[in-house]
Design a protein around this nucleic acid. Structure first.
Lengths: 189, 189
DNA sequence: CCTACCGATCGGTAGG
DNA sequence: CCTACCGATCGGTAGG
């Protein structure tokens, strides 16, 4: 594959990622993607196999990149709470970056065909493993349900992209710290 | 309108609510709704004006019922933390009830036409007012951002329907208490 | 509530 | 990368 073709494919992936993030899987047609790329919808099939495969590829690439950055951010630290905070900050810095291909918002699991959904769920479960480990290492009080705790933590992180305003008072980093602070306080009470 | 017709309409609304909750707005066709109701898709238009209007009606009815129950649950209490906990418990009991028309999961804002979305957002903003008031009354530590705090709280409540298992260890009531405990601990730290 | 249909849009393909 | 098209499906309607 030539350099130009590889770049072209990357452009198309970036465009598709942005549209999927903004309008969802079903709300984004191949013709929409083609229009932003300056070609007709059918022409995209020279670069991709199907809409499903495109979506799965983007989803996996986003989670790969996010997971690598989170693991790296955490590895330098020892204290369990510091590690959790670093993971929250890293995740939000990735998820709220304005232009990256990694911007997911791909929690559209209900919008997607069943066989695609199975792949997304499997990849997401692997993605959540670092968080399971982080939460497992926390000194939570007796009676706290670590499974519920982890789900509530991830729900907070995933929600931020829905209400975050780039021109707001708080940066992604600061919001990440607030999330960590919130779930940390719970353990201290 | 006759008694039979009113019941029939209610049946159709309940079916539509369940399908929208499970498959999303775009993932649910009028023909899908018709099939579960035992009629063809076109026949539904004797009872409703349009798919958009049906969705908005269901969404508003769900939020009306939820808001009324939450306000009632809270009104008997004085302590700000007890009021917050009661609101969390009431919200989850409603949202996780297996069969009610009130089961939303209608956070599909991205799936919906722009003019419909504007209506849903406006109604949701009103719905969140009790939570704004509840959070405003909390004795949070200096430096806590009440707006972020409220968003994170609502994110937790809205997420539960995605991972709750009816046969799991915790009941909706117990999960509601865990959410309240988590956000309360944050203030105590 | 059905039959029979409308115009629009979808993912995808053949052939150049 | 385009032209020209495919079969399927969509929300919705007329007329009974």
């Amino acid at each position: 594959m030539s350099q130009g073709a590889r770049d072209r494919r990357g452009e198309i992936l970036a465009i598709a990622a942005r549209l999927f993030a903004r309008k969802g899987y079903r709300g984004t047609s191949m013709r929409d993607i083609g229009q932003e790329a300056g070609v007709l919808g059918g022409s995209l099939y020279h670069h991709i196999r199907s809409k499903d495969a495109l979506f799965v590829e983007l989803h996996n690439a986003a989670l790969d990149a996010a997971e690598a950055r989170i693991v790296a951010a955490v590895s330098k630290l020892d204290d369990p709470w510091a590690r959790l905070e670093a993971a929250c900050v890293a995740m939000l810095e990735i998820q709220l970056a304005p232009d990256s291909l990694t911007t997911p918002m791909m929690n559209d699991f209900r919008e997607v065909p069943a066989d695609v959904r199975a792949q997304l769920v499997a990849r997401r479960d692997r993605f959540e493993k670092p968080f399971r480990d982080l939460v497992a290492a926390l000194p939570l009080p007796y009676g706290a349900d670590r499974s519920v705790y982890r789900n509530l933590l991830l729900a907070q992180l995933n929600s931020v992209a829905d209400w975050y305003r780039p021109d707001g008072r708080l940066s992604p980093t600061e919001i990440g710290r607030q999330v960590a602070l919130l779930v940390k306080g719970a353990a201290a009470s």
